[in-house]
Design a protein around this nucleic acid. Structure first.
Lengths: 190, 190
DNA sequence: GTCTATAGGGGGATAGAC
DNA sequence: GTCTATCCCCCTATAGAC
C-alpha cells in the first residue's frame, strides 16, 4: 500500500508504472486500487475513465519532458552530456523493475487503445524525437558526434534502439540493454 | 472471412497477425472466430487455451526462422545480402498493416502473459540475436561491415532498433522506419 | 469440426450512502 | 473522497447436441 499527500498524483504514478509494466490492456483500475489501498470506485472519482487516465499519464510525461529539456540543468549541457542524460532516463527505467518506455508500450498496443491516447502518443514521440534530433545535430556541428546521413534518421535509430533495448532486456537480461547503450555511444564516435 | 484448406494453420496465421496488431491482451478468440467465419468455441477445439495458442504461434515462428537461416537461399548469401534479407522481414511487416515484430509485442506485454509464453519469447529472441551476431561477425571479418566493439553488442543495437522502429512508425509514419533501416546500413559502412 | 448454450470471472463504469 | 452494491459487457473455457 502506498500513501501520498496528493492522491491524484499517486494514481498517475501507479498508472504510469503499470502502463510500463503490463501495457494498457494488461492493467486495470483494480491494480491501482489495491496498491493505493482503496476500492476500485475511488479511482473513478479522480479519473472517470481509463481513457482519461491514460491521456493524463502521457500528458504529464510530455510536460515533464518539456520542463527538463528547457531547464538550464539540461539545456546548458554539452551534446555528449545531454545524450548521457537522455540515456540515463532509460537506464533508470530498466533498473526500476524492468519498466519499458511509455512510447514503446503504447505504440505496441497502438491498435488496441482509444483514439485520444493514440494522439497523445504521437505527440509524445514526436517531441522526444525532435529534441534528440536537435541534440545530435548540435553535436555533429561541434564535431563531437560523427555519423553519416541526416540527424533525423540517426535520432530515429537511437530512439528506436533504446525503446527496443528495454524490451529485449526483458527476455535476455539487463546486459543486453547496456550493450545497446554502449554501442550507440561507440557508433557516434566512429 | 478467410478460408483455407488447413484450419489449424489459418488460425495460427490470424493469431500471429492479431498478436502483432493488438498485443496478447488486446485480441480475443472472438476476433479470430469472426475473421475465420466460425464461432468462438470452434477455435478452442484446435487450441484449447489462449496460452497454448500463443506458444504455438511463437514456436511456428521459431521453426520458420530456423528453416530460413539454414536454407541455402539464405545460408549461402553474402553478409550484406543476409542483412538485407533480415531487414526485409521487418519491412514486410511494416507494409502489412503496420504489424510490429512478435518479439517486441510479447516483450512489451512480458509481465502480463503466461509463463510458458515468456519462455518461448526468450528462446525466439535469443535465436534471432544469435544469428544476427554471427552474420555481423562474419561481415566484419570479411571487411564488408565496419563497427567498433563486439558483434554481440552491435547485433543487440540492430535488432533493438528494428523492433523499436516498427513501433515508432505507428506513431510517426513509415518514413521513420525506413530511416532506421537506412541509418543502420550507413553505420555499418562508416 | 462446428454448433448452441452456459458457466464463471474480470473489467469498466455508475448510483447512492456515508 | 471513499465506501458498498450493482450493472453490463467481454473474455476464456467447457458441455453436449449435431
Amino acid at each position: 500500500m502506498v500513501k501520498n499527500s496528493n492522491t491524484q498524483r499517486t494514481i498517475l504514478d501507479l498508472a504510469e508504472a503499470l502502463l510500463q509494466d503490463k501495457g494498457f490492456n494488461g492493467f486495470s483500475y483494480a491494480h491501482i486500487a489495491e496498491k493505493l489501498g482503496v476500492k476500485n470506485a475511488a479511482i473513478h472519482y479522480h479519473f472517470p475513465s481509463k481513457e482519461e487516465l491514460g491521456c493524463a499519464v502521457v500528458q504529464r510525461y510530455r510536460d515533464r519532458f518539456q520542463l527538463w529539456i528547457n531547464n538550464a540543468r539540461v539545456k546548458d549541457l554539452s551534446p555528449q552530456k545531454k545524450l548521457d542524460w537522455f540515456f540515463g532516463i532509460y537506464t533508470t527505467l530498466r533498473a526500476d523493475k524492468g519498466r519499458v518506455c511509455l512510447a514503446g508500450s503504447l505504440e505496441t498496443d497502438f491498435n488496441a487503445i482509444p483514439d485520444s491516447l493514440r494522439e497523445q502518443t504521437q505527440s509524445m514521440t514526436r517531441e522526444m524525437l525532435s529534441w534528440l534530433q536537435a541534440t545530435l545535430k548540435e553535436g555533429k556541428q561541434l564535431g563531437v558526434f560523427q555519423f553519416n546521413g541526416e540527424a533525423g534518421a540517426k535520432a530515429a535509430l537511437v530512439l528506436s534502439s533504446l525503446q527496443g533495448g528495454l524490451q529485449i532486456a526483458r527476455a535476455l537480461g539487463t546486459k543486453k540493454f547496456h550493450e545497446v547503450v554502449e554501442q550507440n555511444k561507440q557508433d557516434l564516435l566512429a
